[in-house]
Each structure stands twice: as structure tokens, then as C-alpha cells.
């Protein structure tokens, strides 16, 4: 008998589909997103863009300094995060972790770092170390550990087991085996993840200023609050250029190294 073109879902699957659809419809109602609002909102964006042109370049040197600070936060935060990720990832990799309890604990810690948004880490570090770029840098470092810790561990788990077995057979220590057989194999993946992490940190560092954790975000907030839209346009353009340059450089480096 020829099979039917579409499989009929089971009763449980059908109920799940209905509930998911009902939740989506209810959610659209809750967020108050109406066609009327969109129709009236889009021209307002046009009006705002009109008031942003031409960008005000009078504060370019100070905006440039803030932008550099933002990028420096991203670089230092990423480097600290990568350095902290490596040992944690070894402890969180199946087959390399010394004990199941250590594996579960470190995996949990990395998940915590990843699931709590960087803005919340920034708020916590502002309270801990005070306002300024130090708080933002630490927030970015923790966020990087959450990102790199997981992907470094997975990259190490996926490496060829043969060289590990060979090193174990010749009497290498666990750390010797990891450094000689596992890390060299996982290195391309580490570099890839680290570059993505730097891109991510650069984008994040822009908004951390909104909670006083350093960077250019505070400049943007002040400009918008004071209706200095032409100055805000300069800041947005500067952010755009920074993120674009980092992404391009990262793509180039990735192609060069891997």
C-alpha cells in the first residue's frame, strides 16, 4: 500500500500542537502588537532618523575614546574568560573530568554563567566593584566562560580517542595526555569559538554602559535622554563601525588560522 503523503499525528502530539498554537495566539494578544500600532510607529521611526541627520561630529574625540574603552573591555573580558574556560572545560568534558561529581558541578557552574544574561552580571559587578569598565569587563569575562566553557568542553569530547589511548598506553599523565593529544586536536575549534566570543563580547560591551558598567552605552543613553539625536547618530554609527570591523577581522583571522 502506498504510504500517505502526510503522517497523521498521534493524539498527544495533536493536543501539543493545539496548545502551542493557543499559547502563540494568546501571546500575540498579550504583547499588544497591533497593525494599527505598526502603521503609526513606522513613520515615527522615519521622523527620528530625519532628526538624526546629519550626525553631529563635534564630540567625535570623546566618543572615540569611549569606543576604544568599549573595545578594550571586550578584549580583556574575552581573554580572561577564555583563560578561565580552558581548565573548567577540561573538568566539564566527558572522559577527561576526574570524577562524575566534578563533571556535574562544573557543567552546572558553566550553565549558570551562560544562562544569566550579561546585563545582570554587569549589575552584580557594579555592586561588587563599583561603577566603571572593571564591572563591565568582569561581566563579559563571566559571560565568555559560559559560552567558551561549554563549546571548549564539547570540542574536546569530540576529538579522536585514538591519540588519547596511545598517550595513556605509554604512561602519560592525565594533564600530559590532555595537553599533548586533546588540546592540539581541539585547537581549531577553540580559535573559532574564541573569535565568536570576541564578536559577542564587543556587541555586549556596547550595552553594558546602560547599567553603569563602562563603555559607550552610557553616552548613547545620555544623548537619547537629552534628545540629542544627531549626537546619538554619531554614537550608533561608531558602534556599527566597531562591530563590523571586529566581525570582518574575526572572519579574516578565522580563514587565516584554520
Amino acid at each position: 500500500m502506498r504510504p500517505s503523503r502526510f503522517e497523521r499525528p498521534g493524539a498527544v502530539t495533536f493536543v501539543f500542537y493545539v496548545l502551542a498554537l493557543a499559547f502563540l495566539i494568546a501571546s500575540v494578544g498579550s504583547v499588544d502588537l497591533s497593525v494599527d500600532r505598526l502603521v503609526h510607529g513606522v513613520p515615527r521611526i522615519g521622523d527620528l532618523v530625519g532628526r538624526m541627520v546629519p550626525p553631529d561630529l563635534s564630540r567625535l574625540p570623546s566618543i572615540g575614546a569611549r569606543l576604544l574603552e568599549t573595545f578594550q573591555m571586550a578584549v580583556v573580558g574575552t581573554v580572561i574568560g577564555i583563560a578561565a574556560s580552558l581548565p573548567l572545560a577540561i573538568l566539564a568534558a566527558k572522559g577527561l573530568s576526574p570524577h562524575p561529581l566534578v563533571y556535574v558541578s562544573v557543567r552546572g557552574l558553566i550553565s549558570l554563567f551562560r544562562t544569566v544574561p550579561d546585563l545582570i552580571w554587569a549589575l552584580i559587578f557594579v555592586i561588587a566593584v563599583g561603577l566603571g569598565p572593571a564591572a563591565g569587563t568582569l561581566a563579559l569575562a563571566v559571560d565568555t566562560v559560559g559560552f567558551c566553557g561549554r563549546f571548549f568542553a564539547e570540542a574536546m569530547e569530540e576529538t579522536d580517542k585514538g591519540p588519547r589511548e596511545a598517550l595513556t598506553a605509554l604512561g602519560a599523565s592525565r594533564i600530559g595526555m590532555v595537553c599533548s593529544a586533546v588540546i592540539p586536536q581541539a585547537l581549531p575549534s577553540f580559535i573559532n569559538t574564541s573569535l565568536f566570543s570576541l564578536e559577542k563580547a564587543t556587541r555586549s560591551s556596547v550595552v553594558l554602559g546602560l547599567v553603569g558598567a563602562g563603555g559607550i552605552g552610557i553616552e548613547l543613553k545620555v544623548a537619547m535622554d537629552l534628545f540629542q539625536y544627531r549626537q546619538a547618530a554619531t554614537i550608533i554609527l561608531a558602534i556599527f563601525i566597531l562591530v563590523l570591523v571586529v566581525e570582518r577581522a574575526s572572519t579574516w583571522l578565522r580563514a587565516k588560522v584554520l
Binding site: 585514538g162 596511545a166 598506553a169 592540539p184 586536536q185 585547537l187
Partner: peptide, 12 residues
Amino acid sequence: GFVFQRHNLVAR
């Protein structure tokens, strides 16, 4: 000494 069926060298 242990010689494996596959060489088990670290490729990179």
C-alpha cells in the same frame, strides 16, 4: 611499548 592498528598520532 604499544603499537596500535591505527597509528593514533596527533594529526595536527
